[in-house]
Write a protein that binds this DNA or RNA. Structure first.
Lengths: 110, 110
DNA sequence: CCTTACATATAAGAGTCTTATATATAAAAT
DNA sequence: ATTTTATATATAAGACTCTTATATGTAAGG
């Protein structure tokens, strides 16, 4: 798995990205990120929950409590239109970072 | 310029990369990173000096004090063989991050 | 003379991540 | 039946990297 120092800052993009496909619970967000990156990117839930709260305060996502059949409470987060709009510039900035690092001396790109 | 949250963690790779070409003073390291990335990546000296100390303690770089003709003191850092060896796995890890983010939903790559 | 570029250094603070801890239900295994 | 594993959320303490602010001093240009 990719180390902490390097992946730092990717959680925000990762969360928005997986929520772009469909609404998810916090727990599912963690699994999706791990699955979609084939285990390369992994975040602890202790990091994700506070991140989800922050993103909700910024109105990028909106969460709503659900009670499943068996009486289990969980919070489903969905991307807001504002959150969706954030994705483009965010990805753009990441793209610029990649370009910058490549210029800094060819970063092997698999 | 690329924001703090996103570039976090790149300083180490950036420093090693510019020192791979030639030994440099701390001040020069900052300028080189900025120049080679066409201004996209920029670090304050307050971030770079402590970083250079850490890297020296890890034996990735070695610094030696110089006194220029005019009596100006400055420290020239050069990459050690150990530091050079670090570059490959570091770049590999960054490469894997890029790949992971691409999988997380196409990151536009310019 | 004053400002800009060179050159190094430290302190205080913000933000993101980790490990550790806590609580509780559902499903699967023994 | 009981234990373990997976689901599900939550917070606290601490590590690390970066920023702004501050400090000191020399060299060159206007």
């Amino acid at each position: 798995m990719i180390g902490t120092g390097i992946k730092r800052g990717t959680a925000e993009l990762a969360v928005l990205s997986v929520l772009e496909d469909s609404p998810l619970h916090g727990y599912e967000v963690a699994r999706r990120i791990e699955q979609q990156t084939k285990g390369a990117l992994r975040f602890t839930l202790a990091a994700l929950y506070p991140m989800l709260y922050r993103m909700e305060q910024r109105r990028w996502i909106r969460g709503s409590w659900e009670t499943s059949d068996a009486g289990r409470r969980r919070r489903r987060y969905r991307l807001t239109p504002a959150g969706k709009k954030m994705l483009s510039p965010l990805r753009q900035e990441w793209s610029e970072l990649f370009q910058a690092l490549r210029r800094l001396k060819k970063v092997a790109h698999a």
